[in-house]
């Protein structure tokens, strides 16, 4: 009899364990514990047993009843925790449908980032034409014909003395012809020079140029404004140094270096082991430039600066080949979303 009870318990438990839903569990409850269920039936069978076995088996069967009831309940709880898969079940490990936002070109992004710092300092954005004349591109900027300083400004010419501007500085002249100081302007734009295309050269590239003019603008102001910009763009920890240089349109002139943010100034391949990255050229506006636009250089002083956008973008984003900017590979552009 005891063996029978054990066999029944084993069967019941295995059936309960595999029951798939509450309906199956209800059926099992009826099958075992119902009024005509197997356990009930066995309890009924006790009457025909010898009296000395009755209490023990009765106790066993009642305990079994409790155990099966518990098993049914716990399976029920289990089932309610893991409901059946709904028809509209979503496997959320599948990728989502991303809205396809496009990206600004990294050069535009760089120009905007540069300009936004200067906008914060009260500068005004000014733009000008790409097709220029000798006067605006050279003469008014104190760049003499037949002077070696022209070597830095190889230029594309189109017929009738027109040319493609080789820097954004002509816009300074055009602006000053129209406006009176004081002012602070920033000039982004496309420029052209006959340089064969390779990883670090291009016949078309971009510059951002700036000009501040007014009564009492000093070299100290130039240092102050450009330090604010460089620390704003490259981080507050960036060290900045101003090195004397020569440009025909400014004097005194400087090249400005920022401590290499790749090696932290220790020297690496990006900074040419120097620990410094050359970022921009600047200086106090040469009196001849003011004279060309009929400003009185005794009254008006000012500073100007210019930087190459491609170079800054390459440093900032770790881009190693300038051609990437103009090939417009979607996989390149999409990295700047």
């Amino acid at each position: 009899m005891l063996d029978k009870i054990n066999a029944l318990e084993a069967d019941a438990k295995s059936e309960i364990k595999t029951a798939g839903d509450s309906k199956a569990l209800d059926d099992l409850r009826i099958k075992y514990l119902g009024r005509k269920g197997l356990v009930t039936e066995m309890l009924g069978g006790i009457a025909s047993l010898p009296p000395e076995e009755k209490p023990r088996l009765g106790k066993e069967l009642n305990a079994l009843k409790m155990r099966l009831d518990e098993a049914l309940r716990s399976r029920q709880a289990e089932l309610s925790r893991s409901p059946v898969m709904p028809k509209d079940f979503a496997d959320l490990t599948l990728p989502g449908f991303r809205p396809q936002a496009g990206s600004k070109h990294p050069l535009t992004k760089t120009i905007d980032d540069i300009c936004s710092i200067f906008l914060g300092m009260g500068f005004k954005i000014v733009e000008g034409p790409e097709i220029e004349t000798e006067f605006y591109n050279f003469e008014a900027l104190n760049i003499a014909l037949d002077h070696p300083s022209r070597d830095a400004f190889d230029t594309f010419y189109i017929k009738n003395q027109y040319l493609l501007r080789s820097h954004t500085s002509p816009v300074q002249v055009r602006f000053m012809e129209e406006e009176k100081p004081p002012f602070k302007i920033i000039v982004p734009g496309r420029v052209y020079r006959p340089d064969a295309v390779d990883a670090s050269h291009s016949f078309m590239f971009h510059q951002v140029e700036g000009l501040v003019a007014g009564d009492g603008v000093t070299f100290a102001d130039l240092k102050g404004a450009l330090s604010v910009f460089l620390k704003g763009y490259f981080g507050a920890d960036a060290k900045v140094r101003f090195r004397p240089h020569y440009f025909p349109f400014t004097e005194p002139s400087a090249e400005v270096d920022v401590s290499c943010f790749i090696c932290g100034g220790k020297g690496c391949s990006v900074c040419g082991r120097k620990g410094w990255l050359e970022i921009l050229g600047c200086g106090m506006v040469h009196p001849n430039v003011f004279k060309a636009v009929k400003y009185n250089p005794e009254k008006v002083t000012g500073f100007a600066f210019g930087m190459g956008v491609e170079r800054i973008a390459m440093l900032k984003y770790g881009i190693n080949d300038m051609r990437l900017f103009f090939e417009n590979d979607m996989r390149f552009l999409e990295q700047f979303r």
């Binding site: 396809q100 936002a101 600004k104 070109h105 050069l107 535009t108 052209y192 103009f326 979607m330």
Partner: peptide, 13 residues
């Protein structure tokens, strides 16, 4: 860019 287009810059020359 909001409409999903990427900005390109191509040579003017």
């Amino acid at each position: 860019t909001g409409a999903g287009l990427n900005e390109a810059i191509t040579y003017s020359l």
